[in-house]
Amino acid sequence: NIFRLLGDLSHLASIFILLHKIQTSRSCRGISFKTQVLYVVVFCTRYLDLLTFQLHSFYNTIMKIFFIGSSVYILYLMRIRFRPTNDPSIDTFRIEYLLGPCAVLSLIFNYGYNWIEIPWSFSIFLESVAILPQLFMLQRTGEAEAITTHYIAALGAYRALYIPNWIYRYLTETNGVDAIAVVAGIVQTGLYVDFGYIYFTKVLQGQKFELPA
């Protein structure tokens, strides 16, 4: 399934872009620490199935371990290694307002009341809104370095590619549709639409990322 593969690769690319940005500029300016914390929570709650050793494939397992490891490493870079470049005063989104509703939603909508399915469902809902602190920060500063926008664009591309992936799977497989993932995935992709528009019309034309006043 080419869409899913490209989606995963674009997700990988986003992480490498972020690491590259932090390492080369030796700064995490413009990156929301809260969004990065949420991604660690998302990966750790989603990939609990690693502990059961009922693994899907080598690819699947390696990617899961990579996503958990790289997201924790990014927190280390932001909080310890390049701490002085991280400005919490503009990263003011209240993540309690995301965590609470996602916890409630995961208790209502899930595929089974157990320690794998509820955290899995929680992680799906949380991922769909995890980018909000980052977008909120962008909104507050009104502009961003090109590399930061490439990072967000790669994340957006990853989400967008999962939609044709689901259509493809719906047409070719008989397992039915993972409704929770699809609905949350569409919401998540929707959050990138505004950003994507400015990215395509400005950054890719060589202009600076600036929000209209």
């Binding site: 995963d8 199935d49 009922q54 595929y111 089974g112 999962y162 993972d178």
Partner: peptide, 10 residues
């Protein structure tokens, strides 16, 4: 959605 398939997406 067939739960027996598990969550094979990342």
């Amino acid at each position: 959605f067939d739960e027996a398939q598990g969550h094979d997406e990342l």
